[in-house]
Nucleic acid binder design. Structure first.
Lengths: 211, 211
DNA sequence: CCGTAACCTGAATCGCCTTTCAGGTTAGTG
DNA sequence: CACTAACCTGAAAGGCGATTCAGGTTACGG
């Protein structure tokens, strides 16, 4: 039966397992991620794993939860500094891509969640979309974007981010074993933002005011 | 060693295995899809599997290839009937959603391919995007859409389709075990198309001409 | 230095899955 | 009907990985 650590040592051990699990899940996938591999990566005895986690699925869920919290924090943080809503959207997207470029684990892990833990998958997407929805509603009410069904558009934005991010992270940067965080092609990022901004622009823009 | 069937009987058996594999992969995932389950679903002896397939991964790749061919055919077929490019885009999207609504296997299987068979994953997305790219280039040259980096936009469209489709197919229609093909909400589909069409619209539309 | 609560360990158990193979069945031909 | 190429079968071998557990280690207050 798994327990919560009671001392600083235990807390550190648990954290090490979590970090190791993120790496192992991301590099070989859930299926091939054995508890042995995770504990070895963490430099910890096999049996110790079961002191802190119920099993493989349990630690997977926690890894997803953790990544989700971190990516949303990165996005909110970045958006906070922006002036208007459009700027905030742009900053949020950029933060999203930067985060996923630095943590390929996000994609690689989330995509497997469908069977491993459908609830975690839904939670992940829903939470991120909810962040968008709030921002979009405010922008819509402020007249910065056209009247729209913000839910649908928020999911569309999520889809764009996920697909382009996947393409950049997984394929632009060599193979799965790949090395450091890849650069996000600036020109493509701008093209994406143009597409998004036009898709959301108010009916009658400021007469000739382009991007 | 796996062989190609030499008679009508063998051909039928092989096809049954392929169909059963699609169902099993879609319903329990690659990991939990044992050869036993596949052969049982097909109503065929366990050993027979190895007459026609090298192993689990081999049949998985074929399932992906098959689904990919079918969804692209559905899209092309639908787009063919359309008048202009915008109409074709709309028809293609609708066909894509209809297909995935009727074959949830597409999502459920593709999402696992990342680790099971990265090549198959990339092949799947790339082929669909290539279809878009051709259409977009033609539309751009014909002045029906603004000048743009069609590759980036094509991937963005792919992302929108995948995310909204996933949402509709996986979540609007009860649980994973879910029943018949769910309806695609018409209002949401239209909102999505508005977003896409505006994102691609030429710089100076026909003076006040809306959608 | 002693005691003990918390922590750590990895060999062994248990169960499941892939793959093989020796032998049976089917269907078409002369 | 005899023959044979193609096809089908499922018990069993061989492996692998999740999880347990009996016993060792660490840290620290008294």
């Amino acid at each position: 039966m798994s327990t919560t650590p009671r001392t600083a040592r235990g807390t550190r051990t648990r954290a090490r397992l979590l970090e190791a699990a993120e790496q192992v899940f991301a590099s070989v996938g859930y299926h091939d991620a054995s508890i042995v591999k995770i504990t070895e990566q963490a430099g910890i005895g096999l049996g110790t794993f079961y002191l802190y986690f119920e099993g493989k699925q349990a630690i997977f869920d926690e890894v997803v939860e953790d990544l989700n919290r971190r990516v949303r924090q990165a996005m909110t943080e970045a958006a906070k500094a922006a002036g208007n809503r459009i700027e905030a959207e742009r900053a949020g997207f950029r933060a999203f891509f930067r985060f996923t470029a630095e943590h390929p684990a996000l994609y690689r892990i989330i995509r497997q969640a469908e069977f491993v833990s459908p609830g975690a998958l839904r939670m992940h997407y829903t939470r991120i979309v909810n962040g968008y929805v709030e921002g979009l509603k405010a922008a819509r009410d402020a007249g910065e974007i056209r009247p729209m069904d913000v839910d649908t558009v928020a999911w569309a934005l999520m889809g764009i981010g996920e697909m382009l991010g996947m393409r950049w992270v997984l394929w632009h940067a060599g193979g799965p074993g790949g090395g450091a965080a890849p650069e996000i092609p600036e020109a493509e990022f701008e093209e994406m933002m143009r597409f998004i901004e036009r898709g959301m622009a108010p009916e009658a823009p400021e007469h000739g005011g382009g991007a």
